[in-house]
Amino acid sequence: MGTRHMPRLAIPNRPTTNPHPMGQHQRIAALQRVLADDSTSPRVRLAACLVLLFAQPVSRIVRMTTDDVVHDGQHVTLRLGDPPTPVPEPVADLLLDYLQALPANTPAINQNSPWLFPGRRPSQPVSPGTLRDALRKLGVPAEKGRTSAIRQLVLQAPAPVIAQALGYHDKSTTRIATEAGAPWKNYAPGDHTR
């Protein structure tokens, strides 16, 4: 190219499948901002909380149904894995308020839909692209927020426990834990009281 024997080439920049995560302080600040923002749709705020707190990909969030929310009167849990994952208080209030207002905010064509995030097409959830765009507009990068959340979670608990609680494959969380430098990989299983 320098001697002009070949044309200039532009090499496309392709993002990796696992982008560099947000910093922990950025993720917590984004979560606090989302919870305090009453001007944004509860639908988008709830989706942002699921990304930033539970490391759920947008493609899985749109497939959640109202049956995935379990409220026994005292506690709110989500069926992300087995057993259901407890939802902390400020997010639980947002989730319950969203569920209560859901019938009024659902398009008429999709009134009897089981989806937690119903779309405009009959019997279909909202498109992942639509929800991802709404999160981006809110200032929550879905991929980076999810990556940050899962890395922080595997630093706080063993990777198989996180995998089971959030519906991930244990090999994925083990790989993420290794990349994040989690101390749990150094513990041998079994009874150590002998």
Rank of each mutant, 00 (worst) to 15 (best):
T3Q: 10
R4E: 15
M6S: 09
R8G: 11
R8W: 08
A10L: 08
I11L: 14
P12V: 04
N13G: 15
N13E: 12
P15E: 15
T16K: 10
T16F: 07
T17A: 10
H20E: 08
H20S: 11
P21W: 02
G23L: 13
H25I: 05
Q26R: 07
A30Q: 12
L31D: 02
L31W: 10
Q32V: 08
L35D: 13
A36Q: 09
A36L: 05
T40L: 09
P42A: 08
R43Q: 06
R45E: 09
A47V: 05
C49W: 04
L50P: 08
L52N: 12
F54C: 03
F54H: 06
A55R: 03
A55E: 00
I61F: 07
I61V: 11
R63V: 07
R63Q: 12
M64V: 08
T65S: 15
T65Y: 07
T66M: 04
D67V: 06
D68N: 09
Q74P: 00
Q74N: 12
Q74R: 10
Q74S: 15
H75N: 06
V76W: 00
L80V: 00
L80N: 01
G81T: 05
D82G: 01
P83G: 09
P86M: 04
P86H: 03
P90D: 02
A92F: 02
D93I: 08
D93Q: 09
D93V: 10
L94D: 09
L102M: 00
L102Y: 00
A104L: 13
T106H: 06
A108L: 11
N112L: 12
P114L: 01
L116F: 06
L116I: 07
G119P: 05
R120I: 00
R121I: 02
R121T: 13
R121D: 12
R121F: 00
V126Y: 03
P128V: 03
P128G: 07
L131W: 01
R132F: 09
D133C: 07
D133S: 07
R136Y: 01
R136F: 05
K137H: 06
K137N: 14
K137Y: 15
G139E: 09
P141H: 10
A142Q: 02
A142R: 06
E143M: 11
G145I: 02
G145T: 08
R146V: 03
T147H: 05
I150W: 01
Q152L: 09
V154R: 01
V154K: 03
V154G: 01
Q156G: 11
P158N: 13
P160I: 11
P160S: 09
V161K: 12
A163N: 13
Q164W: 14
Y168C: 08
H169K: 15
S172F: 14
T173K: 13
T173F: 12
R175W: 10
R175D: 14
A177K: 02
T178G: 04
T178Y: 13
E179P: 00
E179T: 10
W184M: 06
W184F: 15
Y187C: 09
H192D: 04
T193R: 14
T193H: 04
T193K: 05
